[in-house]
């Protein structure tokens, strides 16, 4: 068993195990107690007919889950949310990377530009939503009329074809900041001599991007992907502040639907069932994503 070396290592491991346990315990405890426990309580409520206020309620099994698809509302909201999320993720990665590459160029005033591009991140999403809500009513139509663009000569949030795009724009306006900086960080990890070498070899800009930049920033892409995915699938604040899901139900995300059922219609237990179902959908999507990125890493 190679006595000496092994015993040194296992001694270290034993010492480490204790310390690691100590490292893990506080976070694990807090998370279990203040996060998972309420979730378990929530799951229990989803099997009752609790309306969120009364002191007593009945156990009704999986009835709430069976009711989720009784009307088309959940499917509609889910499709909206998925469409929105796909667009959000794609635009975040494309524009985030694009802006990061611009900000990474050796230009004058680079620090200034970087500073400005991060400003929207420091605002609250609710405030941003409320500000844009006012802008859409007072300012966009003025611009639209001035430029004779029919589509935006009225409040674009009232247009069922435009409302989602406005929300998406506002979400990106604020949500691009952190991904952009993460990309910027990723770009700086690319060794400059690789670029110089490639330039000397006469590689095209696209080739440099494809074969040098992309491999280096792939880990960032994956982090941005997960964070944006989460943001998109749970989108609530911007919609609440700007359209409340309207016109009609054209911008109603799953989170908005849950809010409507749970908080304006007193179907609290049912709303939780919908939320849990949504969680399962998200977990499934993410599991697939993690599986593929792990596979890539392994290669």
């Amino acid at each position: 068993m190679g006595e000496k070396k092994k015993s040194g290592r296992s001694k270290r491991d034993r010492g480490r195990n204790g310390a690691f346990l100590l490292f893990t315990a506080p976070g694990f405890f807090l998370y279990s107690f203040f996060f998972i426990m309420p979730v378990i309580m929530g799951i229990y409520y989803s099997t009752t007919d609790w309306d969120g206020i009364t002191k007593s309620y009945n156990f009704i099994g999986f009835d709430n889950y069976l009711k989720i698809f009784r009307t088309g509302q959940f499917t509609d909201a889910l499709f909206f949310t998925i469409k929105y999320t796909v667009l959000l993720v794609v635009f975040t990665i494309v524009f985030g990377l694009g802006i990061a590459m611009l900000l990474n160029r050796k230009i004058k005033g680079r620090t200034f530009f970087r500073g400005i591009y991060f400003i929207p991140a420091v605002l609250s999403s609710l405030t941003v939503g409320l500000i844009f809500n006012k802008i859409c009513y007072y300012i966009i139509p003025v611009i639209g009329k001035f430029l004779h663009i029919q589509a935006i000569s009225q409040n674009p949030l009232a247009d069922k074809n435009l409302a989602m795009w406005v929300i998406l724009f506002v979400n990106l306006w604020q949500g691009l900041c952190i991904p952009t900086l993460l990309f910027l960080a990723g770009l700086q990890s690319v060794p400059t001599d690789l670029y110089d070498g490639a330039a000397l070899d006469g590689a095209s800009a696209w080739d440099i991007f494809r074969y040098i930049t992309v491999p280096f920033i792939l880990p960032v892409v994956s982090v941005v992907f997960v964070l944006t995915l989460k943001g998109g699938l749970m989108v609530f604040d911007y919609i609440k502040a700007m359209t409340e899901g309207g016109p009609g139900n054209t911008t109603r995300s799953v989170a908005m639907l849950i809010y409507k059922h749970g908080f304006t219609q007193n179907k609290y237990a049912f709303a939780i069932a919908e939320a849990i179902f949504m969680g399962l959908v998200v977990a499934a999507i993410s599991a697939v994503q993690i599986y593929f990125t792990d596979k890539k890493k392994a290669v």
Partner: peptide, 17 residues
């Protein structure tokens, strides 16, 4: 019945549009 107003309003808003 509870929630009718909130259920029917989306259709109303669509109609007005």
């Amino acid at each position: 019945p509870t929630g009718l107003r909130e259920e029917i309003r989306d259709g109303c808003q669509m109609f007005l549009g």
